[in-house]
Design a protein around this nucleic acid. Structure first.
Ligand SMILES: NC(=O)c1ccc[n+]([C@@H]2O[C@H](COP(=O)([O-])OP(=O)(O)OC[C@H]3O[C@@H](n4cnc5c(N)ncnc54)[C@H](O)[C@@H]3O)[C@@H](O)[C@H]2O)c1
Ligand SMILES: NC(=O)c1ccc[n+]([C@@H]2O[C@H](COP(=O)([O-])OP(=O)(O)OC[C@H]3O[C@@H](n4cnc5c(N)ncnc54)[C@H](O)[C@@H]3O)[C@@H](O)[C@H]2O)c1
Lengths: 266, 266
DNA sequence: ACGCCTTTGTGAACCAATGCACAAAGTCGT
DNA sequence: ACGACTTTGTGCATTGGTTCACAAAGGCGT
């Protein structure tokens, strides 16, 4: 509760000295969400074991992650929930407000613009852009769709540092280039394309079909080793009859076999 | 072109012996996509340098990744595009067809159901479910929304192994439990919740606000070190005035400061 | 038929991340 | 005031992943 014997006055024990490990950064938001849930339920103090359980990670890992921010726990007791929320938020840069621009107001862009969890944590939709005149002017939730010609202007005027790309793949690189040229240094890309950016620009991708393919791999592996423990001498047979579903084209084995319906997705 | 002196007959040089490293698995879909684009443009052969450039990775890494599947390159030449597509597809388990069930037909669920890139690679929407009677019966793209009571039945009948959760966070764990009980072992979760599952079930999450928070962290770090190289003695000041945007509530420093608008997102 | 030149596949050094296990710290009950 | 008990913070060993750099492979031009 009261911070006990800490050096008083927001010590920031371990200020800006060392860089947070990337793996830690990617877990902090999860901790933050679990902590927010606890705070809401009136929990005042939490141990590393409890928090780790809630976040689905090893408690040693959690403690090490938090230790990179400073020494904010109380031995024998745990962590003060509110204080930890503040420290994690600060580390992530969420004590300030981040205006975001979304480019592409199709199915996905509209879903994003409608999404409540967007605004709840320091992010604000500064603009929603599309190139289709038929859509421009309509209203999604609270934001109006503007024409993508205004991209540069809006970014500069609202000091936007984060851009979200929800256009078809074909337009993504061009949009990305414009975003970067206008000063955006962080991009979240939903288009199924590898974006090329200059050094110093940070791109993250969210890619549904990649996630599904990874899941498919594991599903296949699991069902393969359930149906038959990988004994030494089965070579080709192991990949067929492996999964539950039906095999469409019986895996011909020559160079010419384009086994994937190679349509470039919209 | 013709496979030259390879041991004939789909050798599968390195059959099912070793496990693919997880990091490799997560990159194979990217290679596959780039390869598909090349095949479509009529490219017959590709070197590791070219493919690596297209996928945005180091070429040594790419070669090592592919070497885990077997030895399918030709020294001095490169890789046969079609043949490599086939091999990567096979490794990922995409030579078979995977029926998928989507639970939750809200903004996101509808966007997913409409999404073309879904079907293009071996995935098929076997069912789209919702609990809201007002939505059940409507049609999204080609699939009709069914009531979530039918979940177990549909999963068993269609031999569904992959489930996608697009419900509000509150319903996600319950939906997850039902999916698993019905036999689903791979889950893609869009709800902002940590799912608890039994050993042997594979969960991947796609979480917009986590991605944004990670981007915010890097954006903050960049602008911090642009505005002032982290000199030794600034402690508290480094986090303020760091970013471009405005700081809303001036970071009070006591335990009671709940610095984050801790609303649990819908 | 041969040697040059390109490109693969991988050994080995490096770096990042994980998880165990425990001493030091600090609380709380008596 | 003190000792037992809880829980943190971290050193260390281990595992997993990346990158360099090069020898072996093999096509292709002459
Ligand atoms: N819908 C999904 O569930 C889903 C899932 C994963 C990935 N994606 C990807 O996300 C992207 C968007 O998907 P979607 O379903 O919303 O597609 P969509 O076709 O519904 O929407 C795309 C929108 O982008 C606009 N647009 C095109 N070029 C533009 C430009 N240069 N500037 C601004 N706007 C432009 C179009 O007018 C359209 O409104 C696609 O790349 C898709 O592959 C979608
Ligand atoms: N929209 C986005 O861009 C976005 C982005 C990231 C994450 N998310 C998350 O994805 C999820 C869905 O988002 P959304 O915008 O589509 O929400 P939404 O409210 O539009 O849709 C949710 C749907 O799930 C249905 N549902 C509720 N309980 C159910 C149950 N037990 N079984 C079956 N269906 C049930 C509801 O009837 C509703 O149709 C949410 O958890 C949200 O936080 C959404």
């Amino acid at each position: 509760m009261s911070r006990g014997s800490l050096p008083q006055f927001d010590p920031g024990d371990r200020p800006a000295g060392e860089r947070l490990p990337e793996a830690t950064v990617s877990r902090l938001p999860v901790y933050l969400r679990v902590l927010a849930g606890m705070a809401e339920r009136g929990v005042v103090t939490v141990s590393s074991d409890q928090l780790a359980a809630g976040a689905g990670v090893n408690s040693a890992k959690l403690r090490k992650d938090l230790s990179h921010l400073g020494s904010y726990g109380i031995r024998g007791v745990g962590y003060d929930v509110d204080y930890l929320i503040y420290q994690v938020s600060r580390a992530l840069g969420l004590t300030q407000d981040w205006p975001v621009v979304i480019v592409g107001a199709g199915n996905l862009g509209r879903a994003l613009a409608n999404y409540g969890g967007f605004v709840t944590r320091g992010f604000r939709i500064a603009a929603l852009l599309d190139s289709d005149p038929a859509i421009v002017g309509s209203r999604i939730g609270r934001v109006a769709v503007r024409h993508s010609d205004e991209l540069e202007d809006l970014i500069v005027r609202h000091k936007v540092a984060i851009g979200v790309i929800a256009t078809p793949g074909g337009a993504a690189q061009a949009v990305c280039d414009r975003l970067v040229a206008a000063g955006v240094t962080s991009i979240l890309n939903f288009a199924p394309v590898v974006l090329n950016v200059a050094e110093g620009v940070d791109v993250r991708k969210v890619d549904l079909s990649i996630e599904l393919q990874i899941l498919a791999f594991h599903a296949q592996r699991r069902s393969a080793e359930r149906n038959g423990p990988p004994s030494e001498d089965e070579l080709r047979t192991v990949s067929e009859g492996a999964g539950l579903p039906s095999v469409p084209g019986g895996a011909s084995r020559l160079s010419t076999a384009a086994a994937v319906p190679s349509a470039a997705e919209a």
